[in-house]
Amino acid sequence: MTVRDCGTVDRMVTLFSRQYGKITAVAFGARRPKSSFAGCLQPFSHVDLLLARNRGGECIRQCEIIHGHRKLREELPRMVYATLVAEIVTELWPENEADSDVFELLVDVLFTLEERNPRVAAIAAAWQLLALAGFAPEYRRCVACGSVISLPAHFNIGAGGVMCPACGGSQTNFTEGQANLLAKFLTLDFRSPGRFTVNAAVLAELEKLLGQCLFYHLEKELKTWAFIQRFEQPGKG
Rank of each mutant, 00 (worst) to 15 (best):
T2V: 13
T2E: 10
R4K: 06
D5S: 13
D10Y: 05
R11G: 04
M12V: 03
L15T: 14
F16Q: 07
F16G: 11
F16C: 11
F16V: 09
R18D: 09
R18G: 05
G21F: 09
I23W: 04
A25G: 02
A25T: 07
F28Y: 15
A30E: 06
R32K: 15
K34L: 10
S35G: 02
G39A: 15
C40N: 07
C40R: 12
L41M: 06
F44G: 01
S45M: 00
H46P: 02
D48T: 06
L50E: 09
A52K: 14
G56F: 08
E58F: 15
R61L: 11
E64T: 11
E64D: 11
H67M: 06
G68Q: 14
K71R: 12
L72E: 10
E74K: 05
E75C: 01
M79W: 01
A82C: 02
E87R: 01
E91S: 12
L92D: 09
N96D: 12
A98S: 11
D99V: 06
D101S: 15
L106C: 12
D108Q: 11
E115C: 05
E115R: 13
R116Y: 09
P118V: 03
V120H: 10
A122M: 01
A122K: 03
A124M: 01
A125M: 04
A126W: 03
A126N: 01
W127C: 04
W127H: 07
Q128G: 08
L129C: 07
L130R: 02
L132D: 10
L132R: 14
A136N: 03
A136I: 00
R141K: 13
A144T: 13
L151Y: 01
P152S: 10
H154Q: 12
H154N: 15
I157K: 05
I157N: 07
G160N: 08
P165A: 06
G168F: 07
N180C: 03
D189A: 06
R191G: 15
R191V: 04
S192K: 11
T197M: 04
E207P: 06
K208H: 09
W225V: 11
F231W: 08
E232R: 15
G237F: 14
